[in-house]
Simulated assay, not measured.
Amino acid sequence: MSDLTLGIPRAIARSRGSRFAGSQRAGTYAFLLLVSLVFLIPLAVILLTAVKPMAEIRAGSIFLPPMAPTLEPFAKAWSSACTGLSCNGVSAGFWNSVRIVVPSVLLSVLAGAITGYALAQWRFRGADLIMTALMLGAFIPYQVILYPIVRIFSTLSLYNSLAGIITIHVLFGLPVMTLIFRNFYVGLPVELVKAARVDGAGFFRIFFSIMLPMSRNILVVAMIMQFTSIWNDYLLGLIFAGRDNLPMTVQLNNIVNSTMGEVEYNVNMAATLLTALPPLLVYFLSGRYFVSGITAGAVKG
Rank of each mutant, 00 (worst) to 15 (best):
F203D: 11
R205E: 14
R205F: 01
I206P: 05
F207R: 02
S209K: 14
S209A: 15
I210K: 04
M211N: 08
L212E: 10
P213S: 09
P213I: 11
P213L: 05
P213C: 09
M214Q: 15
M214C: 01
M214L: 15
S215R: 06
R216S: 13
N217T: 14
N217F: 02
N217D: 15
I218P: 11
L219T: 15
V220H: 14
V220F: 03
V220W: 02
V221W: 03
A222L: 09
I224E: 08
M225C: 14
F227K: 08
F227T: 15
F227I: 04
T228R: 10
S229P: 00
W231F: 12
N232T: 07
D233A: 06
Y234S: 13
L235S: 01
L235N: 04
L235E: 07
L236T: 12
G237W: 06
F240T: 00
G242L: 04
R243N: 04
D244E: 15
N245C: 02
L246S: 04
L246M: 10
L246H: 12
P247C: 00
M248P: 02
M248C: 07
M248A: 05
M248I: 15
V250C: 11
Q251P: 03
L252F: 07
L252K: 08
N254M: 13
N254D: 15
I255D: 12
V256E: 00
N257I: 12
N257K: 05
S258G: 15
T259W: 04
M260N: 05
M260L: 03
M260I: 13
G261T: 03
G261S: 05
E262A: 11
V263T: 14
V263K: 13
E264H: 13
E264Y: 09
E264C: 06
Y265K: 03
N266I: 12
V267G: 06
V267I: 15
N268E: 13
N268S: 04
N268Q: 15
M269K: 05
A270N: 02
A271G: 14
T272C: 06
T272D: 13
T275H: 06
T275R: 03
T275F: 12
T275N: 14
A276K: 01
L277Q: 01
L277I: 09
P278E: 11
P278Q: 10
P278G: 03
P279L: 09
L280E: 01
V282W: 10
V282I: 15
Y283Q: 02
F284W: 06
S286L: 15
S286E: 01
